[in-house]
């Protein structure tokens, strides 16, 4: 590391510290629409890469895989809940802990508020149903459609799963194809397979 790099390093160190302080003061003044944090999961058994977590004052509002494009997710969030979005690792720590627990097999007991205000109608019904699928079990898209009272809306169930704002927390990965194959997953089919295998072994 040469002198210039060292200088840059100390500079960004100061700015990081100032950012945390900014988030704290902005909260006190009620200037925050949403807080975000990044969660690196690569050290966990079920790594899903780098996750973006976002919360409003009402609760966790978004969990996003890297494949969704974190920049695009943030921009969309700005439109949905407001642009005053700040990174705040401290405020997001409880949410990060819950997501980590989900990936780490310590599922029970962890509970945080969720903000599902942006999801209405059929999509909301599907998401609420998904939350009732126990660990270690799966449902087919057709079964979910039947359970929410719209047996012919199999495709719409697929869409609701694919646009789940809180993957991992709302277990859309527990919905599979009727033929037993795992089906698609925003985080990648391989991740879905590993999540299901891990849950089967802990259930």
């Amino acid at each position: 590391m040469d002198a210039a790099d060292q200088h840059l390093g100390s500079e960004s160190g100061v700015v990081d510290r100032l950012r945390s302080d900014l988030a704290r003061r902005a909260h006190q003044e009620g200037l925050v629409d949403a807080t975000v944090a990044y969660l690196d999961t690569t050290y966990l058994d079920t790594s899903v890469g780098r996750l973006l977590l976002a919360a409003t004052g009402d609760g966790l509002v978004r969990v996003a895989f890297e494949s969704e494009g974190h920049g695009a997710v943030l921009a969309h969030l700005a439109g949905a809940v407001g642009p005053r979005i700040l990174r705040d690792d401290i405020a997001m720590a409880p949410y990060a802990e819950v997501v980590t627990a989900h990936l780490d097999g310590r599922l029970q007991g962890a509970d945080v508020p969720l903000d599902l205000d942006g999801c209405g109608g059929f999509r909301r019904e599907v998401l609420e149903y998904l939350r009732t699928i126990p660990v270690g079990e799966t449902r087919s898209y057709a079964e979910v459609a039947r359970e929410v009272g719209r047996p012919r809306a199999v495709r719409a169930v697929g869409t609701a799963c694919a646009t789940n704002p809180l993957p991992l927390i709302i277990p859309c990965h527990r919905v599979v194809r009727s033929d037993g194959s795992v089906g698609n997953y925003l985080g990648g089919v391989e991740v879905k397979r590993r999540l299901l295998a891990a849950e089967r072994s802990m259930a």
Partner: peptide, 14 residues
Amino acid sequence: MRPPFEQLVEDQGV
């Protein structure tokens, strides 16, 4: 539409 404020801090903080 205004960009997420976080992006401003990230891009302009230093």
